[in-house]
């Protein structure tokens, strides 16, 4: 487990306040993929956002990047160093993407343009935001490739992506993402598509580089092992909502929410091999008509009559937060 638990960098770079996302589906219906998420990421801090696939974690990433499918509706606040990004004109948002907020996504093979030299794809990230010459951008890109561990970066600058392994491609993606020292990095399942042996290397590379530049990271993953390796804090997401958040040490040692507990129990070991999905009996509720009360109630072993009403958010003993009726009597309300 991370020894960096509890270290919190200087001030919040990303704040989400009551963020909700509704996405149109066929038949004029809407799915509430994200329902009222409040979360902060500090400078040089890595926050894990963990949950089963389909719980809305990637939609949350898309909402922060301003890259949701057409017709999606976002409510609440997305604050980047205090500035609300919602409602920004497209060109203003473009200036922020890749400069102040960057993205590393799941499949490096799908992230890179297959017809462009890898080096040019890093240099492009620089020239999208900095008025520098091609030559200067190229030199900086070569340097970035060296930093992320591409051997002989000067010679490999002109190679197309398919001549690199998956891990090397993800290093290129990271180089492009960190090219402008972003304040926030959204890392959406950055190691899921990679071999296990490569996963740890990439995670440590991400951690080293972001700590050095003071970048705050929102690490989206379904893998608690990944969270344990590199994150400072963790937020557990279920059916579009954050049900529990706190330091990694606290949440892993004393999970407060029944869902967190089930998630931890379903992971065979911290160093388990593949990305198997946790097995919890029952099904995720239909988010086109989300239940009024606790969304986990239908699958919860400790569900109660009270769970038909929205659960209160409660401060845990270790300083985290949990949204569950179980702790209503033993603790004071969070706000």
């Amino acid at each position: 487990m991370s020894e960096r638990a509890g270290r919190n960098g200087g001030g919040a770079v990303l704040e989400l306040h009551d963020l909700s996302v509704r996405i149109p589906v066929s038949g004029g219906r809407w799915v509430e993929a994200v329902g009222g998420v409040t979360l902060t990421v500090g400078s040089a801090e890595i926050v894990g956002l963990v949950g089963e696939s389909g719980c809305g974690k990637s939609t949350l990433g898309g909402a922060i990047m301003g890259l949701l499918p057409g017709g999606s509706r976002v409510a609440g606040e997305v604050l980047l160093r205090g500035q609300d990004l919602r409602g920004l004109a497209e060109e203003d948002y473009r200036r922020i993407r890749g400069d102040d907020i960057a993205l590393v996504s799941q499949d490096p093979s799908a992230s890179l343009d297959p017809t462009f030299p890898v080096g040019a794809q890093v240099a492009e990230a620089i020239r999208n935001h900095r008025d520098v010459s091609r030559r200067a951008a190229r030199e900086r890109a070569v340097e970035l490739l060296r930093v992320v561990g591409i051997p002989d970066p000067g010679a490999r600058y002109a190679d197309p992506p398919h001549r690199f392994s998956g891990g090397m491609k993800q290093r290129v993606v990271i180089a492009a993402a960190l090219a402008n020292d972003p304040a926030v990095l959204i890392a959406d399942e950055p190691t899921t598509a990679l071999d296990v042996t490569i996963q740890a290397q990439i995670l440590h590379l991400l951690r080293d580089l972001t700590v050095r530049s003071g970048t705050g990271v929102l690490l989206i993953t379904h893998d608690l092992g990944v969270v344990a390796q590199v994150c400072d804090r963790v937020a557990v997401m279920y059916a579009g909502q954050v049900v529990e958040q706190g330091t990694v040490r606290e949440v892993f040692a004393h999970p407060s929410h029944p869902y967190t507990r089930a998630l931890l129990e379903s992971q065979p070991a911290a160093h388990h091999r593949s990305g198997d999905l946790p097995v919890i009996p029952g099904r995720v509720p239909d988010l086109s008509e989300p239940p009024a009360g606790c969304r986990f109630a239908a699958r919860c072993p400790r569900a109660h009559d009270r769970c038909a009403a929205p659960p209160p958010e409660i401060r845990t003993a270790g300083g985290g937060r949990v949204s569950c009726w179980l702790h209503h009597d033993t603790a004071r309300e969070a706000r």
Partner: peptide, 10 residues
């Protein structure tokens, strides 16, 4: 997907 990623680079 790489088109989305290009947008994410700005």
């Amino acid at each position: 997907p790489f088109i989305v990623y290009l947008r994410a680079k700005g």
